[in-house]
């Protein structure tokens, strides 16, 4: 997977009940498996196939990706603030490798 860290934007704090957006970026080539190399051999598929977002240990958002998701996937979604805690974001690719990032939020 990528050498660089994923980038995640979560507000540091939010009011209870507030709905806010989370934006994520990760570096990955998202090789489709449809391309061929110089010798005409197919380049094996290697994409981030799953993205999950857990909040305080519970999965709150998941994305299944197909090869048609662009390289360096951008994923944005919403959350409703209920309590302070920690978000864990995990990207898993076809090689089984995964990368994670955590962000905490203060709600009150």
């Amino acid at each position: 997977m990528a050498a660089s860290r994923p980038r995640v934007k979560v507000p540091k704090s939010a009011a209870k009940g507030e709905v806010f957006q989370i934006k994520t970026l990760v570096t990955h080539k998202m090789e489709t498996g449809l391309r061929k190399d110089k010798d005409g051999q197919p380049i094996p598929r290697d994409i981030v196939n799953t993205f999950t977002c857990d909040f305080n240990g519970k999965t709150v958002f998941t994305m299944k990706l197909e090869p048609a998701v662009s390289a360096n996937p951008y994923i944005a979604f919403f959350q409703r603030a209920t309590e302070s805690g920690e978000y864990t974001f995990t990207w898993t690719d076809d090689t089984g490798e995964s990368v994670s990032e955590t962000k905490s939020i203060q709600v009150g």
Binding site: F61, E66, P67, A68, I75, A76, F78
Partner: peptide
């Protein structure tokens, strides 16, 4: 597209709003 699938977002009530964004190959 060569394959019809793009992606699937799986949401929960914790999302608060049923909206998701990404970038795709066309």
């Amino acid at each position: 597209n060569p394959n019809p699938g793009l992606c699937t977002f799986e949401l929960t009530p914790a999302c608060g709003k049923a909206e998701a964004s990404t970038r795709i190959r066309m």
